[in-house]
Nucleic acid binder design. Structure first.
Lengths: 336, 336
DNA sequence: GCCGAGTGCGCAACCGGATGCACGGGCAAG
DNA sequence: CTTGCCCGTGCATCCGGTTGCGCACTCGGC
């Protein structure tokens, strides 16, 4: 394939001149410019991005690490949507996206460091289920630019983009209170995940705001699965004073809870709110109210933040929290 | 960061020797090898993949083009699953994946050619909704290695990986015949897509195999949407001699058709089979029989094929067809 | 004791482009 | 007619590796 030298020869100039034309340098006369341009056209020349990367010490590529047990990885619409958001910003800025789907923290660490150390990418976005602190430490130590996005542990000193999970809990509770409920149950997620912790905290805050005293008997939990939600709901309803409304910290759990409610013919007696705006929530009957997390924006913001860090190549850590939206559907759209 | 020269200096050898140690060349004495290795460790040296790419004229990364109107792009679990399959092969082979999500054929063409011409990737996998023949022509003309995967037009002379859509139609019909049905309806997809054409053809073949004469009155069609399926089913049932079983060429359509059946209380009188094994099919009631397309394998095979083409860098086009699996659920699991 | 065949390593060129510096020419000011 | 400055361009070096070729040395066979 044609190189910059071929073009130079054909245009009767030095390679450096061609390079300058390429980079849109001023100080090139219009005639030379045109001669070089047409030489490029005639030779069907296209600059070699790899060579340019080497000389410029930057690849215009950023890495995205998606860490999940493989099967689960992309079943959840979260990741595709996140990728769309990231892509929309990156492509617009002339950057490329290098995707790595890994299934364990160890693998994530290896692959991520390999990409960065091999200078194959300029920075990475980490979308990890559970944070590998070793990896983060390495990234910080070797001064690689990176952004954490989505469900991650709170750790200061690094840049993160997340949705406001406390607010999620508060919004759900406020809505249910507005519908007249006072005994509001919680189906929380695994207590080791920050998502769960934050949403649970928000739920409690929401109650406190309304002057409702906390009642541990209204809280249950489990995994972010339909089964988890199903079981947790039954548990709640079998307690001495069952709730009249339930906030489930995830849509899968909410769907499970709804199944359980239907088994007991309670689907119109107990209000239900989930989180995520999973496509399923609009299809079940009654349709589930849910809190929509701005996943696309999460991705876009993460990408924008990372590009910003790269531009002024000094960065101080900052954390962005994005607001969510309440989507009211049949499962909670009635007053007590 | 440490370069190969730093390592060489520290180990008291020439850079070329370090390079040879790196590439596992023979003709390096064990002592030298060890000296170089430990120099690397001491300097925390990691080879620069970009420089290596430049020298070797190969990047060990392949591009994946996902072309879809943005919103629709990844809602469908098809793509995530495809990516998983591709990734599983690529990562295992030490290759990286460069992902481009584009929303129009024009954009696809630009981005794809830019990646290839800039030597940023060694080859591409095209997962396009509708094939852009101009792009394919360019790829062929400039001799870039590429593989087409998934729903693509039949065109000879290029390498494609697809599932056997004729077989899909045949399998569905055979199954329904085995359950005792003779009047089997078809809800086909848009007639401009090869997927639809092939599945329709398979459906007819399946009937012919069983000696059932073709009846145009049993065929309807529409878009691959719930609404399309809903309407097509009503249409079929309103014909003079309605079917006792229906094959819908896509799960979304099948779900729509099921809704329509339920409206008429026919869900247990008319058998239904869809295609895709969409998660939804297991959740609706009655659960939908469907034909599972080996999407993961589609991706894995495409990647394997492309790597193969790259290895022996001469390639003759070949087409792979992967078989699908019948998943029998309540919607068809009863004899007439 | 000589020759041929390895063996272990260094030299230098090359991959394709970016960029600091210098150089010749034109032009305006002195 | 000098002097000084800016403009447009070329030269050389560098980015960080890879690789063909050749040199010096060792060793076995005759």
């Amino acid at each position: 394939m044609a190189t910059i030298k071929d073009v130079a020869k054909r245009a009767g100039v030095a390679p450096s001149t061609v390079s300058r034309v390429l980079s849109g340098s001023t100080r090139i006369s219009p005639e030379t410019h045109e001669r070089v341009r047409s030489a490029m056209r005639e030779l069907n020349y296209h600059p070699n991005a790899i060579a340019r990367s080497l000389a410029q010490k930057s690849t215009a590529t950023i890495g995205l690490m998606i860490a999940r047990p493989a099967e689960q990885a992309l079943a959840n619409p979260f990741f595709p949507e996140l990728m769309r958001g990231i892509g929309s910003v990156l492509y617009g800025a002339g950057y490329n996206l290098m995707l790595s789907m890994v299934s364990s923290p160890d693998e994530e660490r290896n692959v991520c460091l390999r990409l960065l150390r091999g200078r194959r990418v300029d920075g990475v976005i980490l979308a990890s289920a559970s944070l590998d602190h070793k990896l983060v430490d390495d990234l910080v130590a070797e001064e690689f630019p990176f952004v954490l996005v989505g469900r991650v542990d709170g750790q200061s000193g690094i840049t993160t983009v997340n949705n406001d999970n406390e607010m999620v809990g508060r919004m759900a509770v406020r809505h249910l209170i507005a519908q007249g409920h006072r005994r509001i149950g919680l189906i929380g997620g695994p207590s080791e995940l920050t998502v769960s912790i934050d949403r649970t905290f928000g739920y409690r805050q929401g109650l406190a705001e309304a002057g409702i005293v906390w009642d541990g008997g209204l809280e249950a939990g489990g995994w972010f699965t339909k089964e988890g939600g199903h079981q947790a709901l039954l548990e709640l309803m079998d307690r001495p004073a069952p709730p009249t409304a339930v906030f489930a910290a995830d849509d899968a759990m909410a769907v499970g809870a709804l199944m359980a409610l239907k088994e007991r013919k309670l689907e119109h007696k107990v209000a239900l709110v989930g989180v995520n705006d999973d496509p399923l929530t609009a299809l079940v009957d009654p349709a589930l109210s849910t809190i929509r997390i701005p996943v696309f924006d999460l991705g876009a913001t993460a990408a924008r933040t990372l590009l910003e860090m790269l531009k002024r190549d000094e960065w101080e850590p900052r954390s962005v929290l994005l607001p969510s939206t309440l989507v009211i559907r049949a499962s909670s759209n009635w007053a007590l």
